[in-house]
Nucleic acid binder design. Structure first.
Lengths: 362, 362
DNA sequence: ACGAATAGGGAAAACGCTTACTACGGTCAC
DNA sequence: GTGACCGTAGTAAGCGTTTTCCCTATTCGT
């Protein structure tokens, strides 16, 4: 119950506590014989340094915090792994916190990590457009900044204005553009955009890329082909069932993420439709699930783990190559790439006329 | 860079620092008017308490640490989620650390969490039989115990002897017994036990259950039908390929976990064998992957998240129902259950004679 | 051989908070 | 009226490190 302190060690070794500290931290010359005595005392007492006292006394805290929705979700887990690895590589402790998707919880966790005097707080995942919420985050970013720490936004847009944050982005819009273009190139004209909360930054970016691709190819952007919703498997399943029942016309589905794609594929299967024979499906994120699905899912890959690493490097001010002259790098962007698997083919000839008619409607 | 302190707040509010502390902690009566002034000062200065100073000054630390192999692995992730949720429910901060499977890293992390004065350190996952390593863990368990903290072993056997640890187990052996029995009941006589490092506690327990089931049914325990190896998909794939090429005779595979099962199924598929038509396959763990496989995998379910929760309850000494008289509960055991899906059927008639011959060989 | 630089080590002041104690008006009961 | 209480608030002693001075022998350059 009573932990041995540095003073105990000092007493046993017959030296002052300052010397013990020096032995431990190796930041000051200590005679070999003294060092040996002190080390013996440490072992004998089973002395374990008190990280709090240490942090209090000024030695840097050496902690990085990361806030995610859920450890189970591979999207977050991969980023968390990147953060964890880079943090340990930098000799830092990594604290992973989960919000369960609650905004209040998220704000509370930022405060908590601030209280822990974390060197950096990494906030992961898209954000809802919510003025009040953004203000709250901004306030905390400022507070953190004022304490010499940093709030890193990972996978969400900057809060805007003069809020002192650093940002790690991925080319969300570009990936959506690329995969939509892939679909179009295969001959698809009516593509269903499925899932993603309407006011969610991630959805907005993906939808923008999708739309840009359509427009570039001179295709109609039909409102009824955009079906926002949760990023869940269940939503993908249910909405596709409904649309099929309604007789909606489309030859391909661009699901807002792989989960939704999985649900969609399930619905198609239970409706007796084959993928990609009757319907092409693509997703986004390239989580492991994408490779489990049959057919394997064509999707957009995000270097998630790399994003996590970048986030801590950025936060810690470790220049990431490129421009050594810039004073403080404040944002990074990683690329996305489409990975072609088996869930896309040309639309069925039968469906083609419908599709053409629809495309020509503009 | 310079965080406001309690003293700053006190000065601004025109009170003593003790009063500020009382306002914050609500553990002592403070006049309403004073409270208001202090709270205003806190907001004005953007004061954020220093968790380290607080921990140092004696207020309990309120931190729980968990050490796992990898956040990506659902087996660990689910347990981590349970720990995380229960810890927050108990008003504790949860620190998740990953070892990447390295023993040294694991020991270092126990020390780190001890330095953080965590209320509990939860060590997750099976352990290798390694005398020196066990000693090291034991030493740390004692150190932790001496500081009033607890080392909780989650999913691994007790270190033995008088080492002060708490243990959360799952009925590993029982699950293996049940699923093997399931296979036998379906008519299988030659079952391949695939994967799992030989000296790994998890493997040992699963193999024991497997063996017990065989013996109970009077079946031969053939050494050549036990193929230990890594708990990886790749191993499952490769070893099954090899065995098939060698012409090994078996009608069912009991993979040491779902990953291995997935690999095995892939090998069977690429060899032109159908599951369960030509070969039955079962796994262990019931991670999400099991439901993605086609056919869906029959496997053993472990209440992973629940284990995580139990671990922190146990560590924090929160009696878990049952016996209110026992002074300190020191171990819990959760049950396992087999979940029957689509990967098992009766063996092919053709294979039956071989199987009988083999079974009769004893 | 002499002043100076250097290695080795101690004393004590932070670090920011919690928490006994102590103190001081009022109320209340008798 | 007086002592016991109660509600408030301040004083100050830690909590366990790190770190800045400061001091004492050596050792070294010339």
């Amino acid at each position: 119950m009573t932990e041995a302190t540095i003073a105990d060690v000092a007493r046993l070794a017959g030296v002052s506590s300052a010397t013990v500290s020096r032995v431990i931290n190796r930041n000051y010359p200590v005679a070999e014989s003294t060092r040996a005595r002190v080390e013996a005392a440490i072992v004998e007492l089973g002395y374990v340094a008190n990280a709090h006292a240490r942090a209090l006394a000024g030695a840097t805290n050496r902690t990085v915090g990361i806030i995610i929705n859920d450890v189970i979700d591979p999207f977050y887990a991969f980023i968390a792994r990147g953060v964890e690895r880079e943090a340990t590589a930098q000799g830092r402790l990594c604290i992973i916190c989960c919000t369960q998707g609650s905004h209040e919880q998220e704000l509370a966790l930022i405060d908590l990590l601030h209280e822990q005097r974390a060197d950096a707080v990494i906030l992961v995942g898209g954000a809802y457009e919510d003025r009040a919420y953004a203000t709250q985050v901004g306030r905390r970013a400022r507070a953190l900044h004022a304490s010499g720490s940093t709030l890193v936004l990972c996978g969400r847009p900057s809060v805007g204005g003069d809020v002192p944050t650093k940002v790690v982005e991925y080319d969300n819009e570009g990936g959506a553009f690329a995969i939509t273009d892939h679909l179009i190139t295969q001959g698809h004209r009516r593509i269903l955009f499925l899932g993603g909360p309407a006011l969610f930054s991630t959805t907005v970016a993906r939808l923008a890329g999708h739309r840009r691709a359509l427009e570039l190819r001179g295709l109609d952007f039909a409102d009824d082909l955009v079906q926002p919703g949760p990023l869940s498997r269940r939503f993908g399943y249910e909405r596709v069932r409904e649309l099929l029942a309604e007789g909606a016309v489309f030859t391909a589905i661009f699901a807002a993420n792989d989960n939704v794609a999985a649900g969609a594929m399930q619905a198609l299967e239970s409706a007796g439709l084959t993928v990609p024979g009757d319907m092409s499906v693509v997703g986004y994120d390239d989580v492991p699930l994408a490779q489990e699905l049959r057919p394997r899912l064509t999707t957009v890959r995000i270097p998630l783990e790399e994003m996590g690493r970048q986030a801590v490097r950025l936060a810690l001010g470790i220049a990431d190559g490129s421009d050594y002259l810039s004073p403080v790098q404040t944002s990074t962007r990683v690329g996305t790439s489409i990975v072609v698997r088996e869930s896309v083919s040309a639309p069925k000839p039968l469906a083609a006329p419908q599709a053409r008619k629809a495309a020509g409607r503009r």
